[in-house]
Design a binder for these strands. Structure first.
Lengths: 163, 163
DNA sequence: GAGCATTGCGCAATTA
DNA sequence: ATAATTGCGCAATGCT
């Protein structure tokens, strides 16, 4: 079912920034086409006040030039970053898959272990029963060694022990 | 050294419009500021040509209006999509975390199971040893009823079971 | 401070 | 037509 009408709660107001995207770098690869068109917009570069006279010696907090889009260095950085991003995302995805796989492996392992436990438990149970039986037998005809014999009917009580 | 421009010209098939968003929405949490002052002029809403008369009745394959960026409906769709995207990503991330957690749980479970196996094995081993001992004892003074002569060592087969 | 790595976000194409 | 996914670029931020 879909949400027919949602009273627009939380107008996800992100920053109200005008975004001007313009890209035109070489298509890395495998883009069907339809790369969203971008084009340069006449962005006005703020006239750099440059170092007029008063040079505030601010050790930090210096306004960053909006990164001139035309700058050669800018494009270079962008491209590098795009690459890094791609790489990072690939890694991320790979990791996710690996984790999923790990889950499957662990699940299998778990089943195996549980099966083994079941088996061992069974074996133990059997042995214990045998022991009990012997114990009963011994208790019934508790006859010191040497000439031990005679009748020993001893109705065997098949007591099933629990676990 | 300078980067020769890519021979790849920006041949944007269709839709070569830059996006200029000017949102006057309330700034939200997040980005402190640093919003470049990019104000865009309010675009005039195009007078709807309305239904003049010639309406091509295309049953299918109708060209999609390049999505007029100014369109009210466009903005609406974008916003909806942005929301959906956000939701989707959140879910994706959540899922990843869940999976990771699952791995941890399974690992713990595994350890528990292995410990249990170890314990059971030990128990089994003890019991088996006891059995063997008994068997030896019996073998030593085994007195088959009714005339038993000679010693019958009965080679005990210490068969260790496999798993 | 340079530089890659992460992460949140919006856009657009696909898919369901 | 709508919502959900997915690939991608941008920019801020984290980390070396």
């Amino acid at each position: 079912m879909s949400r027919p009408s949602q009273p627009k709660l939380t107008a996800t107001d992100h920053n109200g920034v005008s975004v001007i995207q313009s890209q035109a770098h070489a298509a890395s690869s495998s883009l069907p086409a339809a790369v969203a068109g971008l084009q340069q917009v006449p962005q006005l570069v703020p006239a750099n006040p440059s170092t007029g006279g008063g040079k505030a010696l601010a050790p930090s907090k210096m306004k960053k030039p909006p990164a001139d889009k035309d700058s050669e260095e800018y494009r270079q950085r962008r491209e590098r970053n795009n690459l890094a991003v791609k790489k990072s995302r690939m890694r991320s995805k790979q990791k996710a898959m690996d984790t999923q796989q790990r889950v499957n492996e662990l699940k299998e392992e778990n089943e195996r272990l549980e099966a083994k436990i079941k088996l061992l438990s069974k074996e133990l149970s059997v042995l214990k029963d045998l022991f009990l039986e012997h114990a009963h037998n011994l208790a019934d005809n508790v006859q010191p060694p040497a000439g031990a014999e005679g009748s020993s009917p001893a109705p065997n009580s098949t007591s099933t022990n629990g676990q």
